[in-house]
Design a protein around this nucleic acid. Sequence first.
DNA 1: GCCAACGTTGGC
DNA 2: GCCAACGTTGGC
Length: 144
Amino acid sequence: MAYWLMKSEPDVFSFDDLVAKTERGEVEEWHGVRNYAARNNMKAMAVGDQAFFYHSNIGKEIVGIMTIVAPAHPDSTGELNAKGEVVWECVDVQSVRPFPRPVTLAEIKATEALSELELVKLSRLSVSKVSDTEWKLLCKMGGL
DNA sequence: GCCAACGTTGGC
DNA sequence: GCCAACGTTGGC
């Protein structure tokens, strides 16, 4: 199983919004990603992979864990290319559990063991990889 | 295929 | 609101 980190601006779509949807038995299509590196990460995801939900701009913290419930498929909001193909893809997600204690970007940056985290190194990438050791440490910092 | 100009992201 | 980082576009 692989681990990931996905960003969302909470005033657009927050972890609480995802929890509410999940409780209603719905899934969330992670649409709107328009960056090839981020898209490729989503194409590499498998059902059952887990991902941190990071609130960008407002909060700047990891607030919970979600899971991938559908592999990459055409983004319903994606435009077509000249050949009529859907260029952009996305996965579907559901919430797993919130962090008892959100882990802030400032804390992450202050942690030596997380200096290689893609969130830090590739700050503009909205869907990034998290290693097994980074995942475990971040869960611990989040109170799980 | 190079590179300058421009647009977007996201932290501060 | 500013700006650094970086991806994309388009002229040559």
